[in-house]
């Protein structure tokens, strides 16, 4: 597959994307969304766990970006996170960059 190049603000997430951490990550991502001009890329290289709170968080950020007419991308998704994305249908609204 061809590598896609997009110009957008890239945020590296780290650790466990669960209910306990969701609020802190939400605040930080919303600050990033206020600053970004071409959309947002979330780099999942260092995410070790994601549960349904993470799904809610991503849907929320997708909606915020959509209001501004901007896309949300993810990259470096590991097999566990990929399973959550596929199961929840998140790939229908969030593009995975290769």
């Amino acid at each position: 597959m061809q590598k896609t190049t997009v110009r957008a603000l890239c945020v590296e997430l780290e650790g466990e994307l669960d209910h306990h951490n969701a609020e802190t990550i939400r605040r930080q991502l919303d600050r990033a969304i206020m600053r970004c001009r071409n959309g947002l890329i979330l780099d999942f290289s260092h995410v070790t766990l994601m549960d349904s709170s993470g799904i809610g968080l991503l849907i929320g950020r997708y909606k915020k970006l959509k209001e501004k007419g901007m896309p949300l991308y993810v990259k470096n998704v590991n097999s566990h996170v990929d399973k959550i994305f596929r199961m929840s249908g998140l790939y229908n609204i969030i593009e995975k960059l290769l």
Partner: peptide, 14 residues
């Protein structure tokens, strides 16, 4: 008020 996905049980079942 929190952003919940409503996918908790679906995740458990999968």
């Amino acid at each position: 008020s929190e952003e919940r996905s409503g996918m908790g049980f679906t995740v458990m079942q999968s």
